[in-house]
Amino acid sequence: MGIVFTGASTSIDGYISGPGETGFDQLFRWHTTGDVELAAPTGVFSFKLTPGSAAYFGAQIEATGALVVGRKLYDLTNGWNGQHPLGVHTIVLTHRPLEDNEHFSFVSGGIEEAVAVAQKHAGDKAVGLNGGEIARQAIDAGLVDEIWLDLVPVLLGGGTPFFAPGKGFELEGPLSVIKSVSVTHLRYKVKYGAPKAQ
């Protein structure tokens, strides 16, 4: 069984989107700052990354076997028109489940059930969780092994935080640091049982 991780492109002040769902052009500018083309496994889009970002993001894509997302993201993307761009099975945690299909499972029993279903689909690969409330629920439940931050040098001043309010935890690391154009990629291990961060 692989690790469970959460990750996102986040502003220096900790937001994954700005007020009114804005700021994505700034948060994802690093997807277009290089010369190395990296296509999504489904081929629906591609990025132009620096060599460091391409190696980092390519390894993340290769390592990921399933995803857990919230219904808000699923609806915002229109269910990615039938399949997540990474081409992996995606579990949607929701109070309004739809019918499961070959690309999506809809779970309403809580974050523990969603991660367990994702792990079955992922096999030996990692399970990725989207940020916000999903990440917070999983961390509070002791389910997240690592946090992967794509830290972007911008202050959004408000919006949707990477982590919703919850318990405090210490992190171990960084396990890796990759400096690139318009982003620094960081990986940390979550330390459970450690004193709460103040």
Results as ranks from 00 to 15, higher is better:
residue 36 V to S: 06
residue 26 Q to V: 07
residue 67 L to D: 13
residue 122 A to Q: 01
residue 48 K to W: 14
residue 54 A to M: 04
residue 91 I to V: 14
residue 50 T to K: 03
residue 128 G to H: 14
residue 30 W to S: 06
residue 146 E to C: 13
residue 141 A to S: 07
residue 75 D to N: 09
residue 137 Q to W: 15
residue 49 L to C: 02
residue 71 R to H: 08
residue 96 R to P: 00
residue 49 L to I: 04
residue 49 L to D: 02
residue 99 E to M: 15
residue 142 G to M: 09
residue 104 F to N: 02
residue 33 T to F: 09
residue 62 E to M: 02
residue 134 I to D: 02
residue 108 S to Q: 09
residue 51 P to Y: 06
residue 52 G to C: 04
residue 124 D to K: 15
residue 75 D to M: 12
residue 105 S to Q: 06
residue 137 Q to M: 13
residue 118 A to S: 12
residue 87 G to P: 01
residue 74 Y to T: 01
residue 37 E to D: 13
residue 34 G to D: 04
residue 49 L to W: 05
residue 82 G to V: 03
residue 57 F to L: 12
residue 116 A to C: 05
residue 38 L to F: 10
residue 75 D to T: 15
residue 134 I to E: 04
residue 56 Y to M: 03
residue 129 L to D: 05
residue 94 T to H: 12
residue 120 K to C: 12
residue 87 G to D: 00
residue 55 A to G: 02
residue 112 E to I: 12
residue 94 T to E: 05
residue 51 P to S: 00
residue 83 Q to M: 13
residue 143 L to I: 07
residue 89 H to E: 09
residue 38 L to V: 13
residue 64 T to Q: 02
residue 76 L to A: 14
residue 103 H to T: 06
residue 68 V to P: 04
residue 29 R to G: 04
residue 56 Y to T: 12
residue 47 F to W: 14
residue 78 N to L: 13
residue 39 A to N: 02
residue 112 E to M: 08
residue 30 W to P: 03
residue 30 W to G: 03
residue 100 D to N: 13
residue 141 A to R: 12
residue 103 H to S: 04
residue 45 F to E: 07
residue 92 V to N: 02
residue 27 L to N: 05
residue 146 E to L: 03
residue 103 H to E: 01
residue 109 G to H: 15
residue 56 Y to F: 15
residue 125 K to T: 07
residue 76 L to Q: 09
residue 96 R to H: 15
residue 35 D to S: 15
residue 130 N to I: 09
residue 58 G to K: 04
residue 64 T to L: 06
residue 78 N to M: 01
residue 129 L to P: 05
residue 35 D to H: 06
residue 55 A to I: 08
residue 25 D to L: 06
residue 90 T to G: 03
residue 112 E to W: 14
residue 105 S to T: 11
residue 114 A to G: 03
residue 108 S to H: 15
residue 142 G to K: 01
residue 56 Y to W: 14
residue 78 N to I: 08
residue 119 Q to D: 13
residue 38 L to M: 01
residue 27 L to C: 03
residue 41 P to A: 01
residue 50 T to L: 01
residue 96 R to V: 14
residue 34 G to K: 09
residue 119 Q to I: 01
residue 115 V to M: 09
residue 136 R to G: 07
residue 98 L to R: 15
residue 89 H to F: 08
residue 75 D to R: 10
residue 113 E to A: 15
residue 104 F to P: 00
residue 44 V to W: 13
